[in-house]
């Protein structure tokens, strides 16, 4: 197990390098004009000098080598367009904690609501609570987030008597963004947990447990839930990342200075160094999340093995 994780981690470094290289190559396909706010009025000399400033006049392998060299030194680079000449670490530093806090809270809320909800729905399959839960899940799935987030903000703030924009120092202002962000995940967890649990509940080992005379509660929690939770657990770390990245709507609506919209923003503005830094950050979190997910799955279900094993194909 430990060797497997170590191997995976080492391989991840290679993966990261490949990701960065591909992103790097993709970024170099972007139009030159995007690097200048006022390309129209610049002379050739200015454009050339601008490109050389950004190191864009060099052959691609040279540029690539430079990027990795700087990264190796722990230098993420400097933003050029997003915030001219400001070190990227300085830009990201205040944003990361906000996103972590927001994403963490949202995940916590969605787990504490979504899991009991899915369990209850599976348990009362076909009864009122199941229908009620399904209606909720369907509603969240059906109405576009762009619409119900806005709706929640407009009427939520009115109902709670608070201002429309986010203020990190006022706990009341965290309620609506966190709630909005967790809605989608609540529905997601509840829906899939219900599905897996219903699938599990017809299996023979459950029937055996029933025959053995175990209480329905015990069957649910220690048999069905545990088995049904296996496929879910793998997505947890990833879904945290997705929550953070997916908060773009919420961040836009409430003026939250987080990471959600950052990637889209810097890509559209062609701030290459920023894109690379943010991709690196997200990819690292994503890959670690993937490993954690796999490991968690193995812990929950001993039947699952990772990697190659003697006698296996």
């Amino acid at each position: 197990m430990l060797t497997y994780i170590t191997k995976r981690l080492l391989r991840s470094l290679l993966t990261l390098a490949i990701i960065l290289t591909i992103v790097f190559i993709l970024l170099r396909q972007m139009p030159i004009e995007g690097y200048f706010a006022n390309y129209d009025k610049l002379s050739k000399v200015q454009i050339d000098s601008g490109l050389s400033q950004m190191g864009l006049d060099q052959p691609m392998p040279v540029q690539l080598f430079r990027m990795f060299r700087d990264l190796f030194k722990g230098d993420l680079g400097t933003s050029r367009i997003y915030r001219n000449n400001v070190p990227i670490t300085e830009i990201l530093a205040p944003k990361i904690p906000i996103s972590l806090k927001l994403g963490g809270l949202a995940l916590l809320v969605s787990l504490t609501v979504g899991i009991p909800m899915g369990t209850m729905m599976a348990r009362h399959k076909g009864k009122f609570f199941d229908h009620f839960g399904t209606a909720f899940v369907v509603f969240i799935q059906a109405v576009p987030a762009a619409v119900y987030f806005l709706f929640l903000q407009l009427y939520g703030t009115e109902l709670l008597g608070i201002r429309m924009l986010f203020d990190p120092n006022d706990w009341k202002m965290w309620v609506l963004p966190v709630f909005s962000m967790s809605l989608g995940n609540i529905a997601y967890y509840a829906m899939w947990l219900r599905r897996y649990m219903v699938d599990e509940s017809t299996k023979d080992y459950v029937q055996l447990a029933r025959i053995k005379g175990l209480s329905e509660n015990k069957i649910m929690t220690s048999h069905i839930f545990r088995n049904a939770f296996v496929p879910m657990i793998q997505y947890l770390p990833t879904s945290f990342l997705n929550t953070v990245i997916g908060s773009i709507y919420i961040e836009s609506l409430y003026s939250i200075p987080g990471m959600g919209g950052l990637l889209v923003d810097v890509i559209k503005r062609q701030d290459n160094a920023m894109v690379q830094a943010v991709v690196l950050l997200f990819a690292t979190v994503g890959i670690i999340g993937l490993i954690l997910g796999d490991v968690a799955m193995v812990f929950l279900d001993p039947r699952i093995t990772l990697g190659s094993k003697k006698g296996g194909r």
Partner: peptide, 19 residues
């Protein structure tokens, strides 16, 4: 000046609420 990417959508309501 407060940054809001959705200013076009939200500002009219915020004006009505005196914010």
């Amino acid at each position: 000046l407060i940054y809001n990417a959705e200013a076009l959508t939200l500002a009219p309501t915020m004006v009505l609420r005196g914010e």
